[in-house]
Nucleic acid binder design. Structure first.
Length: 364
DNA sequence: TCTGGGGTCCTATAGCCT
DNA sequence: TCTGAGGCTATAGGACCC
């Protein structure tokens, strides 16, 4: 039996900013793309808990957040742009601490599959071999939370369960600064009253679809036969939901993910049809992407162009190369050719993106 | 209210080959 | 030669996650 711990840093970007500038503490704080006095095009990345009192949530258009709680001079909210240069070192420091709690004390012991970083602000730890039971895991989690609070001045929410799925749902159960333990025998009763939306992979679309079928809670979902879920949602996702609604999840921790693609995209401040601007933007994107892929030691075989029109209609168009590439220039020419048909539309363009995939490690 | 940017994975379709 | 099944690859779109 496994004991898996999921750790999630509370309002991470906002907490990092507060750490740097203590005068921000306790204030409604919104981190997101360029607010421009409520006129910006971005969305809220993270907001502090005081900001949530105004109804502000992550993923919300920044202009709507501004209506709920404006920044100066009209209102008390502080709006800041995302600053990864600040967050990344903090994240590294925190998860260096967390890693120690997953890994074995003996130097010869194999540590593979015991730690998985799952984004800038969360990670999974497999503590099965360090902890004989859930009570020990809970003690370990308390120590981990304390150490992070002491050394990094950040709070986090932790969930403990028999697998990644349960651990993740549990860490979300009590926030901020929470600690939730779900033992194997408690899994069914823990999940049953929760919204189906809590299951990883169930987003707004699936939630609405299930609601139409009269299913809102995980307990109701569990009553649906497997073949029906597969009929409704496809072989892969249907079977997954059948297992997930029972709290079953065998997925392993993955120590290091190999990248599958590199991309950049850009939303214009104003929708445009100007060819010169679109081309120069594409050049910058291609250059950035090529450099990122090269730096990581990859060549690529496929180039994808993404175009989003002003009405949000989005298209992608891709082409595979005859030879693997590592320079931006040929790929840029291909992207420009892929862009051509979209320029014929009378609609203005809101965003363009450039991505490379079909990666291979270059020998060197 | 008007929707970022970085990604991953899945599905459908079409063409090609055996 | 025709027909079909099945596999593989390329392509487009969409849902989802942080």
């Amino acid at each position: 039996m496994r004991i898996i711990l999921h750790i999630d840093l509370d309002a991470f970007y906002a907490s990092c900013e507060e750490r740097e500038r203590p005068e921000l503490k306790g204030k409604p704080l919104v981190i997101g793309a360029d607010p421009k006095a409520g006129k910006g095009r971005g969305v809220v990345s993270t907001c502090s808990y005081p900001a949530r009192k105004f109804g502000i949530r992550s993923g919300m258009p920044i202009s709507r957040a501004w209506n709920l709680c404006p920044g100066p001079p009209q209102g008390p909210c502080i709006y800041l742009p995302v600053n990864f240069d600040l967050y990344i070192p903090v994240s590294q420091a925190v998860f260096a601490i967390a890693r120690k709690y997953a890994y074995h004390p003996e130097p010869q012991a194999s540590n593979s599959g015991l730690f998985e970083q799952a984004g800038i602000d969360e990670a999974f730890l497999d503590v099965s071999r360090r902890c004989k039971n859930f009570a020990q895991a809970e003690e370990l989690a308390k120590n981990l939370k304390d150490e992070i609070k002491q050394k990094e001045r950040l709070t986090c929410s932790v969930g403990i369960g028999p697998n990644k799925l349960i651990a993740k749902i549990a860490s979300d159960f009590r926030k901020p600064d929470g600690l939730t333990v779900v033992k194997s025998e408690q899994v069914a009763s823990f999940l049953s009253p929760l919204s189906a939306r809590k299951l990883i992979g169930v987003g707004p679309k699936t939630e609405a679809f299930l609601k139409e079928k009269g299913i809102e809670k995980i307990g109701q979902l569990r009553k649906i036969p497997k073949f029906v879920l597969i009929e409704w949602l496809g072989k892969s996702f249907g079977a997954y939901l059948y297992e997930a609604s029972r709290g079953v999840d065998d997925s392993p921790l993955v120590e290091k993910w190999e990248p599958k693609s590199f991309g950049r995209e850009w939303t214009f401040e104003k929708d445009t049809k100007e060819k010169a601007l679109l081309h120069s933007t594409l050049e910058n994107l291609a250059e950035d992407v090529a450099e990122a892929a090269r730096t990581e030691g990859f060549s690529w075989k496929t180039v994808t162009l993404k175009v989003r029109y002003a009405d949000f209609e989005t298209h992608t168009s891709q082409k595979s190369l005859t030879e693997p590439a590592q320079d931006g220039e040929t790929s840029l020419e291909i992207a420009k050719a892929l862009l051509r048909p979209y320029l014929e539309s009378p609609k203005k363009i809101r965003l363009i993106g450039f991505r490379v995939s079909g990666l291979a490690r270059r020998s060197r």
